[in-house]
Nucleic acid binder design. Sequence first.
RNA 1: CGGGGUGUGGCGCAGUUGGUAGCGCGCGACGUUUGGGACGUCGAUGCCGCAGGUUCGAAUCCUGUCACUCCGACCA
Length: 479
Amino acid sequence: MANDKKMVEQITAMDTDFAQWYTDVVKKAELVDYSGVKGCMIIRPYGYAIWENIQHDLDTRFKKFGVENMYMPLFIPESLLQKEKDHVEGFAPECAIVTIGGQNKLAERLMVRPTSETLFCEHYKNIIHSYRDLPKLYNQWCNVVRWEKTTRPFLRTSEFLWQEGHTMHENEEQAVEETLQMLKCYEDFYRETLAIPAVTGRKTDKEKFAGARETYTIEPMMHNGVALQGGTSHYFGDGFTKAFDITYTDRENQVRYPHQTSWGVSTRMIGAIIMTHGDDNGLILPPKVAPIQVAIIPVAQHKEGVLEKAGELKALLSEKFRVKLDDSDNSTGWKYSQYEMKGVPLRLEIGPRDIENNSCVLVSRVSRQKTFVSLDNLVEEVEKALVSVHEELLARAEKNLAEKTSVAASHEEFLDIAENRPGFIKAMWCGDSACEDQLKDETGGVKSRCIPFVEEHISDKCVCCGKPAKHMVVWGRQY
RNA sequence: CGGGGUGUGGCGCAGUUGGUAGCGCGCGACGUUUGGGACGUCGAUGCCGCAGGUUCGAAUCCUGUCACUCCGACCA
């Protein structure tokens, strides 16, 4: 196309520099702006609208499981955070701390929450007394702060938005079931709403959440083969409930410790969307979370009847879709590029010729194919086109995931793939974290992503030390 | 936290041996245009990241600091 050159010059090509491409898209699509505080991003209306759509979809899913929303304080007294030993060790190094209130030094330092397990535990201690009080299925949508060393919009920020679910159950079985159910919920959400396929499974001990007995994870693969930890669901057993002395009386009149879970996903998912679906023309948004699903571009809008018709179509489509009619006096070409950059899944062009023919043009953001459709069944056609955008995005991402997943049977093969083929590596593992450390050192950053729920048998021996293998692990570099 | 790079109108950049800041895009008005980033005329916009220092004089030299970015180590 004649204008391709001009159009891409604002966004660095993916193949040239993927990291720069990401930064360009984030800024040019008006998702975020930088603030004066390191690692804190200004989420602009267009970016925040994506988050609102994500929230609405997920929240609906949570509520179907009986989860209730509530809100916990921003501050955690230092002594409270320290109650569970592993948990403190994991989070203390990256906490922001408030030491002064008003003009006075505080008697006890307050940690800005990095996560709220401890707050929930303290509260649960007060409200859980009987098996009749269980399960407790609470969730909060909030911000948390983790003082990260290096930061990138959405992927790693000092402050980020997320949801954290915290549940208490009578026993291990019910808690484990909850943990797995919520991971499945994330997996479904990723696939059905974000059109992102992923590997799911259990974290190795080395990669577990601080204080968790088991951590389950969803690991989508970005376009360049790098993994993103897309969400986690933790089973805590009774570790915290013992540390916080939370007890209930069970059906047999015995005092017991409840079993606990927590699970969360964050604004990082927006980063996953960008890096999974985007292309050299910018962002591509899955229709279900796109703030604008259809951009109506009037052609020759100064001509009689064009804007009126465009307005009619907007009113018609707005009953079912999120629609924007751009009647600004920018040129049509500018508008095309603008909405492509912002990832709007479907463009509708309407001009004098179309009006004569009682039709309009639909253009898919993924394929950029133009389709002429009759105005008589426009709603159905738009619906179909949006569904097809979702399906194409999912298929494309699945293809990328499959193509960039390799199998390594030997140590040499593992190192060779790690160096030469971006993506996931499936390989056997003995269960010793020393082998994880060694592989990470040797490859300069390839770590275990997870032990998938469905393991394949590749060989009998650990790919690193050669001792008998316990599991198949999916390995990869991560953001 | 280690190593590189960058901070100058909204954005992208230039600014020589220190002499009081410029270009392109964008922005505003008017006119012509309008099916893939239009064009003309006129116009507006600067605490040169911030704080010290050197100097008659600093965007420029020195010190410190903050932020951004890339590459590592740590994490959603």
